[in-house]
Design a protein around this nucleic acid. Structure first.
Length: 294
DNA sequence: AACGGAACCTGAAAGC
DNA sequence: TGCTTTCAGGTTCCGT
């Protein structure tokens, strides 16, 4: 699933492939991928425009056009952009294509961007202004950095489980199920801990965990063709995501696997203690579910 | 405000 | 073998 690092890689690739080029043609194979306007109007709005800049915020891509309007692309769960020669056959699950050329008019620099998305959770959107979903995003860990004090203050205002809060795009933009799972393991914080119970040092550890996990994923997956971890036969480059039942890489205890906030979650029962600090055990007493700290 | 659940999708994998 | 069920999750929406 594309989360912040994968979308960042997509943004870097699209910059290299498309920035400064002009749109020669757009083909929408499946109109469901175009959220707005209608597919025909979408094609008309892009045709002939020059792509001036590409940026990313959270899991959103924004392509700024030379008339001030923008194209937004959200990859959903299985969306990806690849570069092909204009004459290349359609990709498997190709839902749209954008053909580009150099703006001076000849056919030099002709390239075809193909949008693939088997499960169709991704969306393309053309608009004059920023979308509400884009402007409502919280700080982006890569674009803005993570302000620990500010994050701590924000988390103190909710009793939701910390993992649930991290997935809230208004609190931090771009964190998805994988990055949240990895960062909480790095920080030794149980995903079920109420967000308002976290000490400043724990929030700092989570921030560092996110930064480290994002960096690792970027280093591992950078390149023109990304493979998502849940694709058939794809390798799993993550430390504990997708490793429920395996021994914890840190303490060898079997990793727990459960559903939290409707999402698959993995954590270590020993080194991500529910109520205690790392290193200190002894903390049982009936059901640990409703256990509250003094 | 928060929380659970459904819907949107479809291929792969597991179950029978 | 082949049909059926389950699972995966980013986001939005709806009901409680």
């Amino acid at each position: 699933v594309p989360e912040l690092p994968e979308v960042e890689i997509a943004a870097r690739n699209l910059r290299a492939w498309a920035e400064g080029k002009a749109v020669r043609a757009v083909i929408v194979h499946d109109p469901r991928v175009v959220e707005a306007p209608a597919a025909e109007a979408f094609v008309r709005a892009l045709k002939g425009r020059r792509i001036e800049a590409i940026d990313r915020r959270g899991k959103w891509l924004r392509l700024r056009l030379d008339d001030g309007s923008r194209v937004f692309s959200h990859l959903g769960m299985t969306g990806k952009w690849v570069r092909r020669a204009p004459e290349a056959e359609p990709e498997p699950f190709e839902r749209a294509r954008v053909d580009l050329r150099d703006p001076d008019g000849d056919e030099r620099g002709a390239v075809s961007l193909r949008y693939r998305d088997p499960r169709l959770f991704g969306r393309l959107h053309h608009a004059r202004d920023d979308l509400a979903a884009f402007t409502a995003l919280g700080p982006d860990p890569l674009v803005d950095g993570i302000d620990v004090a500010r994050l701590h203050d924000r988390l103190a205002r909710t009793r939701r489980a910390i993992k649930d809060a991290l997935l809230d795009q208004a609190i931090l933009a771009g964190v998805g199920n994988i990055q949240a799972t990895e960062a909480l393991w790095l920080a030794r914080v149980d995903p079920r801990r109420p967000a308002d119970q976290l000490a400043r040092a724990e929030v700092r550890a989570i921030a560092r965990g996110l930064e480290r996990s994002i960096e690792q994923t970027l280093a591992h997956e950078s390149g023109p063709e990304i493979t998502y971890v849940e694709e058939a036969g794809a390798p799993n480059p993550f430390t504990i995501y997708g490793h429920g039942g395996d021994p914890c890489p840190r303490c060898r205890a079997p990793l727990d696997r459960y559903v939290l906030g409707g999402r698959g979650t993995v954590s270590c029962p020993r080194c991500q203690p529910t109520a205690g600090r790392p290193g200190r055990e002894r903390r049982e007493k009936g059901s640990s579910r409703t256990q509250r700290r003094p």
